[in-house]
């Protein structure tokens, strides 16, 4: 082999070594690439992922509570024989106000995750909602909506949380 090609080979290796030893690219390689082999978050490693190929598990690992929450709601409704459920989904401000660490999916994402229709308190069909997610004792729970006053009360509690958050942020109601 041409000796000059070997020199170029060594130079290429040296450049790579310097490149990935710079703070920026070294950090990038460590946190974005090498993480697949060794990471504090085990779910991000090849070893873990190779042993967990079930699509549902993969969704749980990646989408976390957004997916499991939707699944739990769907399971609950199925167990309770709910027919044509339309679930009133709380706004994020309500969840935050109740100090619950959870991201509530928007109606389309909720439907994508579990096949159950959802609505927001300002959706056009909100008055058809027959189930609702509310906070109780620091946890989210699903309750059936029996009548319009009950529905109005839930909507009012959602709206109040949004208004308070807007006021705090200096936005109009």
């Amino acid at each position: 082999m041409n000796f000059k090609k070997i020199i170029l080979f060594v130079a290429a290796c040296l450049i790579l070594l310097i490149f990935f030893n710079t703070t920026f690219y070294g950090n990038w390689f460590q946190t974005k690439i090498y993480r697949a082999w060794e990471s504090e978050a085990e779910v991000e490693t090849f070893d873990y992922q190779w042993d967990h190929m079930d699509p549902v598990q993969r969704k749980i690992d990646k989408l976390a509570s957004t997916y499991t929450f939707s699944q739990q709601v769907a399971e609950f409704l199925k167990k309770n024989g709910a027919k044509n459920p339309l679930v009133l989904l709380p706004p994020q401000e309500y969840i935050k106000e109740r100090q619950i660490d959870m991201i509530i999916p928007e109606p389309i994402v909720f439907y994508y995750h579990c096949g159950v229709k959802g609505a927001w308190y300002n959706s056009a069909n909100v008055n058809q909602a027959n189930w609702a997610i509310i906070a109780r004792n620091g946890e989210l729970t699903i309750i059936p909506i029996q009548n319009q006053p009950e529905r109005d009360a839930i909507i009012a509690s959602y709206k109040s949380a949004v208004d308070k958050a807007n006021q705090a942020a200096g936005q109009p109601k």
């Binding site: 070997i6 170029l8 080979f9 790579l16 697949a36 699509p55």
Partner: peptide
Amino acid sequence: LEFYEIPVLLVFTVVMLVSIWRCFYYP
């Protein structure tokens, strides 16, 4: 392909294998 291209292409391969795996594995 030249012999001295291998180091960079090897790193490229490793980086892209990680990318392909994540593309396949994650929802």
